[in-house]
């Protein structure tokens, strides 16, 4: 396709909506508006709540708030003082190798 031909088609396309008539609304639109209006006048609480929560901005904000609250709770929780009372795990659980005497001493 030559440039001249291409430009011609593009220009024609740009003017293809000239003289375009208005699209006619579908029949019975008024009846549908009335029934919709009646339905809208009795809004279901759960539907409205769901619609609000399903908005990405609201959903992401809620997640961020929950994460922030979690983080703050974890950060502000008092650390348990272990200090000197902490038992040596080696002593507590006897991780050391038992001697042969201990192993082979028969119980009375």
């Amino acid at each position: 396709m030559s440039n001249k031909h291409l430009n011609k088609i593009v220009e024609e396309s740009l003017h293809s909506l000239d003289g375009c008539k208005r699209a006619e609304a579908p029949p019975f639109l008024y009846t549908r508006i009335v029934s919709r209006s009646a339905a809208d006048s009795q809004p279901n609480l759960w539907i409205r709540l769901g619609a609000i929560l399903s908005r990405p901005v609201v959903a992401i904000s809620c997640i961020l708030i929950v994460l922030a609250v979690n983080f703050m709770v974890v950060k502000s929780a008092p650390q348990p003082f272990l200090g000197n009372q902490q038992a040596d795990p080696g002593e507590e659980f006897a991780f050391g190798m038992p001697s042969l005497i201990d192993l082979e001493t028969p119980e009375p």
């Binding site: 208005r22 699209a23 006619e24 609304a25 579908p26 639109l29 008024y30 508006i33």
Partner: peptide, 9 residues
């Protein structure tokens, strides 16, 4: 509605 429905649609 009858007078403006085409404009809106």
């Amino acid at each position: 509605v009858a007078l403006t429905q085409d404009m809106v649609y």
